[in-house]
Design a protein around this nucleic acid. Structure first.
Lengths: 341, 341
DNA sequence: CTGTTAGCGCTTTCAA
DNA sequence: TTGAAAGCGCTAACAG
């Protein structure tokens, strides 16, 4: 039978209240008494029943998610995942609040962090914009003892409790290997299409991609990076311009959002051999393009996994529990038309 | 404030005990009374706090995992995952028992299922061997009202609560696409290497692979399938024989275990152009081969995810709760040397 | 500094 | 067929 607080109280010859105090590290216990209790805990192999503890405390985990009010499919999906979990939250003694901020707006994000701090939530997750003002605000939250997780895009120099996102350098490298191998002997340059080099995840993807191309496919010409600002119309314009300037365009690696525009531009090209196209994030548009053989591979991060993982980790940190690290690692999913979910 | 049983008892004008009886569908309540309670539940939007309920019941979820006593790395890893969760089990009101059976032994597996049934666990997971005797035994367990999940390999015709494994046909198709594209213009035949065509997952992988090769790369010659019985020595022998018979061997798709032998055979070949190699399951051997560019891609199923998923689903089924379907889908992971975990 | 006591939300005897 | 009361393992006043 698993030992309970009663057992250890009896074993240590103290009252329940005292046991509780040392278990929760509260003050007001003599060192000797504390040691007696700790000895009992060790001797009996006691582990606290968190469910019972939370019941007694009527504890409700209050989490805040700060999300960019971006209209691209990925962010919409991410928000939907948070909303799904927020709906389930009541069942699991949680309350999840979603705070919107304008996309890429450093001041707004910093302000939202400060505002969230005022609520004293049990945990906070946000999609970082990589800027000093954001770092300052995030550190204020962390310093207040609130576990903070970054979601999707990380914040340089921030000592976050957790980053719930993929290794973007590795993602870029993966794209590079697929690009190089899918192209094989085919000639022609490759276009890297970014969302914005102001966000860290895009920068890292580009670095990884270029590194692999240089290492393993040194003869391949890479065109200068262009930035589509995660905007479909802009992406379409840029890609169409690239087709016009390089009739032999052999590959496109798009590592930002707004791929609807890229796909429109592909559709507008003639019936010749299309370039090899590798892009990020599985959405209805990219899924359809994959199924129709208009693109070759989609690298994806599972937004549902990211959100659930952030929640698990924040809850665990909030009460100092441990997590299964391996479970919280977000995979770089590679989707071909054959293994779509 | 979330309504509790007290609230609904008051609202319906009955006692706690009665509320509990209708909540749990127990007999001994007049129809009118039952309706009054149900009306109250609906009116107040009551949802039962499972944590509190489990505490009151001192409920312990008792799960049984039946695993093949196979010595390949994948099965060893799977078992390790179950053991990890079994260790964590105490913390979460669970008890997980592991039962060993000889690999591919139909009678032993059927007997183990019957033995487990005698324990009346709250849930049962097992790696299926696809045979009628196993089906019969599994149906006996299911009919006794015990939620059953198949793990890794499914059981044809079995109405299991859950299959915790990948879509193996899709995995085979994925391998086919990668093989065809990585080979590109290169000439030469491809060898399919099975573990055993007696298990359903291997058969399905082969079907998917052959289908894609026929559809998308019809000029590629596929050699007759050989079966290595998941045995490294046998795999090594078969692959070496293939090299001898076909000096222009261009590709190998290995969809069983025992890949250590395959890799040994690769190492033994001369310094010429090696074949494109795609195989299943990330182990220390396959990871090392991937990092050294001795193989090209590893398709993987995440054993940890499979085990955790099986546990979540069995617990949920045991108390009639719902699951996040998307969370329980096991991905076909594609690993290149660039995105290894 | 330490102990007593009354819950948290739900289940479960045992009577009525 | 229904209800009162005790208790699951832990926490939180409030006394002492």
């Amino acid at each position: 039978m698993k030992p309970t607080v009663h057992d250890i109280a009896a074993y240590a010859g103290v009252s329940l209240a005292t046991v509780d105090r040392v278990l929760n590290g509260r003050a007001g216990v003599r060192a000797v008494t504390r040691e007696r209790v700790e000895a009992a805990v060790a001797a009996l192999g006691f582990v606290r029943d968190m469910a019972a503890a939370n019941l007694a405390k009527s504890r409700v985990y209050h989490l805040v998610f700060i999300l960019p009010a971006n209209d691209n499919s990925f962010m919409i999906g991410l928000r939907a995942q948070v909303e799904t979990m927020a709906a389930r939250a009541a069942t699991e003694r949680m309350q999840i609040d979603i705070v919107d901020v304008p996309a890429f707006d450093i001041q707004a994000l910093a302000a939202a962090l400060d505002a969230a701090l005022a609520f004293k939530p049990d945990g906070l997750a946000f999609v970082a914009v990589d800027a000093p003002a954001v770092l300052d605000a995030a550190e204020r939250v962390r310093t207040a003892g609130i576990p903070v997780a970054t979601l999707v895009s990380d914040l340089s120099g921030f000592r976050r409790a957790h980053f719930s996102g993929i290794d973007n350098n590795a993602a870029g490298r993966t794209a590079g290997t697929l690009m190089g191998r899918f192209l094989a002997e085919r000639r022609g340059p490759v276009l890297p299409l970014a969302g914005s080099l102001m966000v860290r995840d895009h920068r890292e993807r580009l670095e990884g991609f270029c590194a692999v191309m240089a290492e393993r496919f040194p003869d391949r010409v890479l065109l200068p990076v262009v930035e589509g600002r995660d905007d479909p119309a802009e992406a379409e314009r840029l890609v169409t311009a690239a087709f016009d300037a390089h009739p032999d365009l052999a590959g496109i690696y798009s590592f930002g959002a707004g791929n609807r525009g890229l796909i429109r531009s592909l559709n507008a090209q003639g019936a010749g051999l299309r370039p090899v196209v590798i892009l990020h994030e599985l959405t209805s548009a990219t899924r359809a393009a994959l199924l129709d053989d208009r693109i070759d591979a989609v690298l994806n991060q599972d937004a549902g996994h990211e959100v659930r993982s952030a929640i698990r980790v924040l809850k665990a940190k909030a009460d100092g529990a441990s997590v299964v690290d391996e479970q919280e690692r977000i995979r770089i999913d590679i989707f071909l038309k054959d293994n779509l979910p």
